[in-house]
Simulated assay, not measured.
Amino acid sequence: MPRVKADGGGTITFMLALGAARQMCRLTTTFQTDKQAFSYLHKYRKEFEHIARARLASGELENGIVVLSML
């Protein structure tokens, strides 16, 4: 579920496919609308998935979620 922060930034979540399993990822953005944030995620999806897989492999999780920020 997308969330927008009071400062104009927000976070969006997406699921990383790991075979039959899924891993929740959270991307923090500075965009003011969900539409802008999702467009950004779609544009850089492969890069974010690559970074998310690397963080998951190294155990870099916050409460079981891979946390990412804008490139």
Rank of each mutant, 00 (worst) to 15 (best):
Q32R: 14
H42T: 13
G19M: 02
A17H: 08
E60R: 08
A52S: 06
D34W: 13
T30F: 09
T29N: 07
G19Q: 03
E60H: 09
D34I: 14
I65S: 03
M70W: 05
L41A: 10
G64P: 02
L41P: 06
G59E: 02
H42Y: 12
E49I: 07
K35S: 15
H42S: 14
F48P: 02
I65K: 03
R26W: 05
K5V: 01
T33Q: 07
G10C: 01
A52G: 05
Q23Y: 02
T11W: 04
S39E: 15
L56M: 09
G64E: 01
H42E: 15
M24V: 11
K43A: 15
Q32H: 12
C25Y: 03
H42A: 15
A54H: 06
R22E: 13
L16F: 00
E62L: 06
R3V: 15
T33H: 07
L18E: 09
G64H: 00
I12D: 03
Q36E: 15
L41S: 06
L61K: 02
V4Y: 03
A6W: 05
F31N: 10
P2H: 12
M15T: 02
M1L: 11
K35I: 14
M1C: 09
L56T: 02
G59Y: 01
I51Q: 10
I65W: 03
K46E: 15
R55V: 00
L18G: 00
T28Y: 15
L71K: 13
F31W: 11
D7Y: 01
F14N: 00
D34R: 08
R3M: 09
F14I: 01
Q36P: 03
V66Y: 01
R55W: 03
V67E: 08
M70D: 10
I51M: 07
T11G: 04
V67T: 04
Y40P: 06
S58A: 10
A6K: 14
F31M: 12
V66A: 03
D7I: 00
V66G: 00
M24G: 08
P2V: 14
D34F: 14
M24D: 09
K43L: 13
M70F: 06
